[in-house]
């Protein structure tokens, strides 16, 4: 499958994503952010990094890149869009996903493997995964503190839009297992319609034993199925 990986100035996980897509037998196509054609791709992936140096707010400037108008139209037609880390931040800034990724509560850049619990099965990212499944994935970010007002959070809970929560190895939620202070320990969400998904952890860096984790494979395979 042809998958577009959007490259913004400051993206730095674009090649990781392309590598993982190739590994899974797909055909990544790097799309420069100034392009206005998606060149017939069937999936769009917004990779991690520091688009526009995180100036103003993480993701705030990238959302106005020319290609994002096309990405928005693609999503409006029901096209599947995945945002990882900075890609997640961009989708939130663009209003394509609810919430904001604010500065980590610790104020530190956190780079380590964490555990997340699958909250909703049968989403674009979690097909074939039972709710409660614990995955081990790497994170690397300074702005991953998922923030939304209480009414918005309640609505996400009701509609099953929360896909992942940070947890410990056993799948239990605790302040110690939440690496960034995210409200309700949210690590990933989907849009109301379900075709736009975003998460802070990096599944593309967890597809090979050599890299120390393989739980990302199931998520990307789900996205690509």
């Amino acid at each position: 499958m042809k998958v577009g990986v959007v490259v913004f100035p400051g993206s730095n996980c674009d090649h990781d994503a392309a590598h993982a897509l190739e590994l899974l037998g797909h055909e990544p196509l790097l799309l420069w952010h100034k392009e206005t054609s998606l060149q017939g791709v069937e999936r769009i992936l917004l990779p991690g990094g520091f688009s526009y140096g995180d100036y103003l707010r993480a993701g705030a400037l990238a959302r106005f890149s020319p290609i994002m108008a096309e990405v928005g139209r693609f999503a409006d037609r029901g096209g599947p869009v995945l945002g990882i880390c900075n890609g997640f931040q961009i989708l939130c800034e663009a209003g394509m996903l609810p919430g904001v990724l604010a500065r980590n509560a610790s104020l530190r850049f956190v780079c380590k493997h964490v555990h997340v619990r699958v909250e909703a099965g049968e989403s674009l990212l979690t097909r074939g995964l039972r709710p409660g499944t614990v995955l081990r994935l790497p994170i690397a970010h300074a702005d991953g503190n998922y923030t939304l007002d209480d009414a918005g959070l309640d609505a996400l809970e009701r509609s099953g839009q929360i896909l992942f929560r940070y947890c410990d190895e056993e799948g239990q939620l605790s302040a110690g297992a939440n690496p960034n202070g995210a409200m309700r320990a949210i690590a990933g969400v989907r849009s109301e319609r379900g075709n736009v998904v975003g998460l802070m952890p990096h599944p593309e860096r967890a597809c090979e034993g050599l890299l120390g984790a393989t739980d990302g494979r199931a998520l990307l395979e789900s996205f690509l199925s």
């Binding site: 103003l56 705030a60 106005f64 800034e93 904001v100 939304l148 007002d149």
Partner: peptide, 8 residues
């Protein structure tokens, strides 16, 4: 549109 994110 840009200078503030009115969610927060």
């Amino acid at each position: 549109r840009l200078l503030a994110n009115t969610v927060i």
